[in-house]
């Protein structure tokens, strides 16, 4: 999985590309651990080809940490394959989900 980073307003935007499963989830966790704890995030999922529950677990874990440090975490541009996992597990209730990255980075 590739992670590319840019900053818009006070948000760090992470664009993920590729597979987010049990073998790549640690990469994402480590990357986030390298950012300041209170840094607000937008995670762009448009180029995620495949997400399973281990990948979802990583995203939920990040959301929990951000919530406890009063930072914001938003998700943007979920494709249908990603959406299906969120729909079945009802994980959509935990996130603010945007269909556009710049809209997510404004509010």
């Amino acid at each position: 999985m590739n992670i590319s980073e840019k900053t818009v307003n006070h948000y760090t935007i992470l664009s993920l590309q590729g597979i987010l499963n049990a073998s790549s989830a640690p990469t994402l966790r480590n990357y986030i651990a390298g950012l300041p704890e209170a840094q607000s995030l937008v995670i762009d999922l448009e180029k995620i080809e495949f997400l399973d529950s281990s990948g979802l677990g990583a995203l939920v874990g990040i959301a929990r940490k951000k919530k406890s440090s009063s930072a914001v975490m938003k998700l943007a541009r979920m494709n249908d394959r990603v959406k299906k996992v969120f729909e079945i597990t009802q994980a959509y209730t935990l996130f603010d989900i945007y269909d556009d990255v710049s809209a997510a980075a404004e509010a």
């Binding site: 541009r77 969120f86 959509y92 603010d96 989900i97 945007y98 269909d99 556009d100 710049s102 809209a103």
Partner: peptide, 18 residues
Amino acid sequence: GNINPADDTYTVIEKNRR
């Protein structure tokens, strides 16, 4: 699309800006 129960109309439009 998904929204949160607390979202107002403005937020709903922002979440679906594209």
